[in-house]
Design a protein around this nucleic acid. Structure first.
Length: 313
DNA sequence: CAGATTTGACCAAG
DNA sequence: CTTGGTCAAATCTG
């Protein structure tokens, strides 16, 4: 197999996925009620397109010696796909901000929907008695608490955190911490979104020996990976299973076949993780894993990646 | 004084 | 209506 430049492979892959998603969207006329793509799927495709551009830009930017911060290049892209950052107060409802999505649509406030599309996973973290009740607040990222809520049927309140750099670097990662009432030493931490702030990007110093973009993309993955090996991890629900511990935000393409939907999920993964799910890595060919699975909307929900796994390149 | 936390109010979804 | 998630003013902290 041709050993393509590692950077080019990833970059190409991003652009190809972006293009694929864009073409799918283009092939699906928006006002057609008979369109095989649901609104949700279209939104996901849009998300893919934007995210592909973001990652491609990040890769290119990571390869330059100057390394201009993403926040300067395109802060609005980092802020949210398609969203123009205004004052923080207007973020949740800005009637005119979605220039790339649903222009002219009445319900262009997609922020909550789009937020739901962010990758989401849950970890159960047990606190050690010696450390006291400080809770599982020592992850690598810095968070700012923005709310607390009593949850019906739960003994303990749920705390809401967002990335400290939400306003300065438009990083939309959030987490929720819920103490388990069954076992108060366990905290269930639900993360949503990948850090796009400088915390999720490696320090520029270490960028000479290893291909730059690989460091950039995998840095955060490694952090997550470390967390994963050290902690009990559990995913919840269909959505979480779908995203079942992505190491970068996954991209999706949909295809309608015989009334069912064929879904393709791709994500970057550290090579060791790829090795776990594929036997084809001895060639050292691809750090990317792709998953294709078929689900029939009329059938019972099947959350397994049952169909097949393969390397994409 | 700047940044973080607290907490009641608000809002969208169901 | 209820509920979970977020906002933002008030308050705290270093």
């Amino acid at each position: 197999m041709e050993m393509m430049n590692w950077e080019h492979m990833n970059l190409l892959n991003e652009l190809i996925h972006g293009l694929k998603a864009a073409k799918q969207l283009q092939a699906s006329p928006s006002p057609s009620p008979s369109s095989c793509l649901t609104t949700e799927m279209k939104e996901t495709l849009l998300h893919n397109i934007v995210s592909s551009f973001e990652k491609a830009i990040l890769m290119l930017n990571g390869s330059t010696t100057q390394n201009i911060p993403m926040t300067e290049l395109a802060p609005d892209l980092l802020a949210h796909p398609g969203r123009v950052p205004e004052s923080p107060a207007s973020i949740t409802e800005s009637p005119r901000s979605d220039e790339f999505f649903d222009v002219g649509s009445k319900d262009c406030n997609l922020s909550s929907k789009k937020r739901k599309m962010l990758p989401k996973w849950t970890e159960q973290i047990r606190i050690s008695p010696e450390r006291g009740l400080e809770g599982p607040h020592d992850d690598v990222f810095s968070w700012r608490k923005y709310g607390q809520k009593d949850i019906l049927g739960a003994k303990y309140p749920r705390s809401y955190y967002r990335c400290t750099f939400r306003n300065t670097q438009y990083c939309w990662a959030t987490k929720q911490v819920q103490r388990s009432d069954a076992d108060p030493t366990i905290f269930e931490v639900t993360y949503r979104g990948i850090h796009t702030c400088s915390q999720g990007i490696p320090p520029p110093a270490k960028r000479e020996t290893i291909p730059n973009h690989t460091v950039a993309i995998n840095y955060q993955n490694n952090l997550l990976d470390n967390l994963r090996t050290n902690l009990t991890v559990r995913t919840n629900g269909l959505e979480a299973d779908t995203f079942s511990f992505p190491v970068t935000s996954p991209f999706y393409t949909y295809e309608s076949i015989n009334g069912g939907t064929f879904c393709h999920v791709g994500s970057f993964a550290p090579s060791d993780f790829t090795g776990l799910i594929s036997t084809n890595t001895s060639t050292g060919s691809s750090p990317i894993f792709d998953v294709d699975f078929h689900f029939d909307p009329t059938a019972e929900i099947n959350t397994g990646f049952s169909t097949f796994l393969h390397n994409s390149i």
